[in-house]
Nucleic acid binder design. Structure first.
Lengths: 135, 135
DNA sequence: GCTTGACCTCAAGTGCTCTTGAATTCGTAG
DNA sequence: CTACGAATTCAAGAGCACTTGAGGTCAAGC
């Protein structure tokens, strides 16, 4: 199995080396050894990094993911948790769709003030607090 | 025009008083006066707060919104900017949809390891870096 | 062998959005 | 008029995800 040094991982993943070291410290990735001081990574770390990006997009924190990856290294994922997270994403998607439509409307609307436009006012009522989580 | 004290605004907006003070400090909302030390707000602050929530959901920072609200207090919104932001939201929505589908798939998938499941691997390739912005 | 330059460690700093705590000031009820 | 409770100010702290900087080390090239 081919090993990559940190520069190569950085280049192929698009992440800065500092982030890779940070992820390792957090237990999100592992280096397989050293060449002198220099970390060596298995090629599979690239997959792991994609998985992390995926998880971030889905609203997991780094810490949560570190837990999921568990001891063995293979994602030990709780299915119920995933479905929960998917439902959460659904809410966020619906929210963002309203946002987007709202923005487009406001950009096009000719009402003297947006606050006087009924569509905008309806939008505001729905804005409320966005379902939490980053994206 | 009815005036509300901070507790009432907090209760009706769902935001803690500390956040309201923070928003005022940042120039996002204004109190119309004081009763002794106590801030008084116009009822319209509730609308403003919805607008702020909306903007947050759309990926604006508090500072950006403070600028938009400008001197007069009426949202002085740059339409081109809104459309840009809407397009950005579109990207994020598409990304989240992939996420969500991916999560559902993984929860249902019976492959021995997710990494061996072709659907999951395809998903990973798309995960890349999520379009920036919060929510 | 010595220089070079990439990588290393560890601590501290950044940006954003708030929250918390200590000490103080008021208006209102009794 | 006094005591209470709610608001106030100001400074500091928190959580997340990283980044930056200073100072050290090591493999490789000349």
């Amino acid at each position: 199995m081919k090993t990559l040094d940190i520069a190569e991982v950085a280049q192929r993943s698009g992440l800065p080396a500092s982030t890779l070291r940070f992820y390792e410290e957090k237990g999100l990735i592992r280096s397989t050894g050293r060449h002198g001081l220099r970390r060596l990574f298995a090629e599979s770390v690239l997959e792991r990094l994609s998985l992390i990006a995926l998880g971030q997009g889905a609203g997991f924190t780094l810490e949560e993911m570190a837990e999921m990856f568990g001891a063995d290294g293979r994602p030990a994922i709780d299915r119920a948790r995933l479905l929960e997270q998917a439902d959460d994403l659904d809410k966020r998607i619906r929210h963002l769709v309203r946002m987007r439509d709202g923005l487009r409307h406001v950009a096009a609307c000719t009402a003297p003030s947006h606050l006087e436009c009924p569509t905008f006012r309806r939008l505001l009522r729905h804005a409320a607090r966005p379902p939490r989580g980053r994206s």
